[in-house]
Amino acid sequence: MEYNSIQELLELALAEETTIAEIVLKVEAEESELSEADVKARMLENLKVMQKSIKAGREKKIESAGGLVGEEAAKMSDYIAGRPGLLYLQAVTDALAVAEVNAGMGKIVAGPTAGSSGIVPAVVVATGEQLGKSDEEMMMSLFTASGLGYVVSRKATLAGAAGGCQAECGVGSAMAAGAAVELHGGTPEMVVHAFALALKNLLGLVCDPVAGLVEVPCVKRNGFSASHGLTAAAMALAGIKSVIPPDEVVLAMTEIGDALPASLKETSKGGLAVTPTGEKIACRLRK
């Protein structure tokens, strides 16, 4: 069994009358010549690291290398303390938490990348907790996210240096959207449409980090991208479909990434990085 496109992944799930997560798990077990139990154990380890990184980012102020970020999750945590039950706010807080842990040289799961590592954990854990799901169920939804991201890695890119931030936070948000639909018990079709809806709306996102650091705008963008993924999941669960099919959205992402100038692809030679404040910060940190 194999899949080289989102459409093929969907068709396999439909033909086997199962979830996308189960297909991704089965294919990985075949490819790696491991038992499904072993593959699941490895994914569970990812979930554990994600949960720990959320906790770490929420609990304490992080000292990042550049010192440009570090208290966002703590501030959001205080703000939402009096507003329980708001899924969006929890996801935003958790995404900031993981992204800050990453900026502060903490342990994270680079999924799809280190710079966008807050989005999937935040959406999966916030949705899972809200729905009262077990770790096993949250872990399975990570297979959904992984399978979707895997297709992008094969057909396009997950590197900001090659495709801009749409390939990192855009894809992260789309993977998270698919996982959220899976946790809600949505159909495989809803999963792939959530993916397409999320990615479509982040097409063109550039990678212009201040001073070359994974801090500004990266940390806050993880928070925004998490809420974005939740919005896409909600639309898909409501039955809204992406007019442009998922694989064609990925194609568009590649084309847009190629058309982006190098200055907006992780070189810090354009956009926010060369604003007066951005340059001032870069100058200060070089000293």
């Binding site: 799961v109 680079a110 999937v120 991201g149 890695s153 801090e215």
Partner: peptide
């Protein structure tokens, strides 16, 4: 590249 390269690796940040 497998799915654990996409959802992973587990690493110390930031890059």
């Amino acid at each position: 590249m497998g799915i654990f390269d996409v959802m992973g690796p587990i690493m110390i940040g930031p890059s």
